[in-house]
């Protein structure tokens, strides 16, 4: 009889111990109603590396004011967060460093906060990872394309975008560029606008860039397109 008692006590202690050793889930001190982005989406980084800026989200209550102590959890396939879950700080915000996965392309980050009724509110952010080819494309873009195909101006690199008519397409303009096939984009870059009945302001780059570099620029354009580019053809996957 005594032996049985001891066994039961030992088992109870063991179970309690097991419970404690499991990772403690953060308990929200308060509940918010709405989660919004403060900053950090639409960044571009190389595969497997960290984003330059952290992702910052804010939880607001039903009255629209920031909520302190609300729980925010981040998810994303292949993405690592530091921290993966946290309570909002004094200004109602959570800041997380983000490391992208090993595959090039679009990454979705979901930030989620539980609401008081048991449901939750979530927010989806997009980030872009560049593989070798896209990185090369980014370098070619930064040297040759960006002066006309980017409307952002800095004192060191004044944009030529506004001086051109018809205006060049921004590479992020997925609505337009996603409809142009890889082959057409490649010949536009290689043979210039005039050869394809477009504006002669787009020079021919076939004597300047190697075929691999043109392919890389197209790959880069596809990666930064917004809305994201979907390759044509049958889609299989596991």
């Amino acid at each position: 009889m005594k032996r049985l008692q001891i066994t039961i006590i030992a088992m109870a202690v063991l179970i309690a111990g097991c419970k404690q050793s499991a990772t403690p889930a953060l308990q929200p001190a308060k509940y918010g109603a709405k989660i919004t982005e403060v900053g950090g989406s639409k960044q571009v980084a190389q595969v497997g590396s960290g984003l330059a800026q952290p992702v910052v989200v804010q939880v607001n209550g039903a009255d629209g004011n920031p909520v302190v102590g609300a729980l925010v959890a981040f998810h994303g396939e292949g993405v690592q967060f530091n921290p993966a879950q946290a309570l909002t700080d004094a200004s109602g915000q959570v800041t997380a460093a983000v490391q992208l996965g090993f595959n090039a392309g679009d990454y979705q980050i979901v930030a989620e906060t539980p609401k008081s009724g048991g449901s939750s509110d979530s927010l989806t952010l997009h980030e872009t990872a560049l593989g070798y080819e896209q990185t090369l494309g980014q370098a070619v873009n930064a040297k040759y394309c960006i002066r006309c195909h980017d409307n952002e101006s800095t004192p060191e690199r004044v944009s030529n975008f506004d001086n051109l008519s018809p205006a060049p397409h921004l590479f992020t303009d997925g609505a337009t560029l996603n409809r142009v096939s890889d082959a057409d984009l490649t010949s536009l870059i290689a043979h210039g606008g005039a050869a394809l009945g477009k504006s002669p302001q787009m020079p021919a780059y076939s004597s300047t860039l190697k075929p691999a570099e043109i392919k890389a620029v197209v790959a880069y354009m596809r990666t930064v397109a917004d809305p994201p580019y979907q390759a044509p053809g049958v889609k299989y996957g596991k």
Binding site: G193, S199, P200
Partner: peptide, 8 residues
């Protein structure tokens, strides 16, 4: 006309 040099 042909080379659009004025764009740059």
């Amino acid at each position: 006309s042909k080379y659009g040099c004025q764009s740059c």
